[in-house]
């Protein structure tokens, strides 16, 4: 009967978004009078997995067949579906990520589940099972009634603020049957920035647009990001021009983020850009044009030249 939560590790540590998902799942379990079980797939340190207990999981399942060492949305979905069956779970929670995105749909297909993507609040059980989700790239919200017996919730970052206890959870190994057909795709090579803060996971984001004039000036953006321990992002033209890698592009056709703080430097604030960032808690805009549309969607603004303002901000952060 338990609520099942899929969790991920990044560089050996439970992802922050997974901690949030566990806490969310534990709350749903509380509301529905059951317990929360976390499931991790692939290589993971058991003592790290046990920390799922701190966020409310009462048990952790760990599937660690060597075939599961590399992230594989299809095979992972098979494992999680098997776990949902074993646990008799009627609610499955995942934190949105590129791996989770690849899994949720396959899971929904396997379990014929009612699926809500981009969930931003705890469900309302007053009248059926209703969840609020972000639609039209953050321009609106929908209240979705999930009518199927099994419900899958893919939650957005900053949906809930986890509270921690010092309880750890027991870790059981889980070895369901795997399908050969899930292993037909071969990954030839992977290119991944290491040590950087992953943009979708970041609490603080410093983003910049065409106002930076060229890639040679990004040092100013990176300096502020580093001082703040923030991730860096960019507008679409910036990634189109190859000034920055595509995975930093935020907006309607890029990554959608909801950090605590989004600092936009030399970005005009086109509606397609805003769409991907407007669910950030606090938005700061720095633009030399006082009429830039972005100021209308900002909490704090500075009309000024990024080349002068950025170094001053970086120095001020270092002085904090």
């Amino acid at each position: 009967m338990s609520v099942l939560i899929f969790v991920e590790l990044d560089e050996g540590k439970l992802k922050k978004s997974s901690q949030e998902a566990i806490f969310y799942g534990a709350k749903v379990a509380e509301m529905t009078g059951t317990t929360a079980t976390a499931i991790a797939v692939g290589q993971a340190d058991e003592s790290e997995l046990a920390t799922a207990g701190r966020f409310g999981a009462t048990k952790v399942l760990h599937a660690r067949d060597t075939r599961l060492n590399e992230p594989n949305g299809m095979a992972y979905a098979t494992v999680v579906a098997a776990a949902a069956q074993q646990e008799g779970s009627t609610v499955v929670v995942l934190a949105k990520s590129s791996l989770a995105d690849a899994m949720t749909a396959r899971l929904a297909g396997k379990l014929k589940a009612g699926l809500a993507a981009n969930v931003i609040e705890l469900p309302d059980l007053g009248n059926g099972f209703v969840v609020k989700s972000s639609i039209y790239t953050g321009k609106a919200f929908a209240y979705n009634e999930l009518k199927a017996g099994i419900k899958i919730l893919a939650i957005k970052k900053n949906t809930i603020t986890p509270e921690e206890t010092d309880t750890t959870a027991p870790v059981d190994s889980f070895s369901p049957a795997l399908n050969d057909s899930d292993f037909v795709i071969s990954v030839k090579s992977t290119e991944k920035a290491t040590g950087d803060i992953l943009l979708p996971e970041a609490d603080l984001v410093v983003s910049a647009g065409r106002g930076m004039k060229g890639p040679e000036n990004w040092g100013l953006v990176e300096d502020l990001a580093q001082a703040l321990h923030a991730a860096t992002a960019c507008s679409k033209p910036v990634s189109d021009l190859d000034w920055r890698p595509h995975h930093e592009h935020v907006g309607q056709t890029g990554i959608k983020i909801s950090p605590n703080l989004y600092i936009a430097c030399g970005i005009s604030g086109a509606i397609q850009h805003l769409a991907g960032v407007n669910s950030s808690k606090v938005i700061v805009v720095i633009n030399k044009d006082a009429d830039a549309p972005f100021f209308k969607s900002a909490d704090y603004g500075i009309v000024g030249d990024v080349f002068e303002v950025l170094p001053r901000l970086t120095a001020a952060v270092k002085a904090l």
């Binding site: 992977t190 979708p200 890698p245 995975h247």
Partner: peptide, 11 residues
């Protein structure tokens, strides 16, 4: 595309 990078795939 994956988080923070990309991968080459054959299928």
């Amino acid at each position: 595309e994956i988080e923070g990078g990309k991968e080459e795939i054959e299928a």
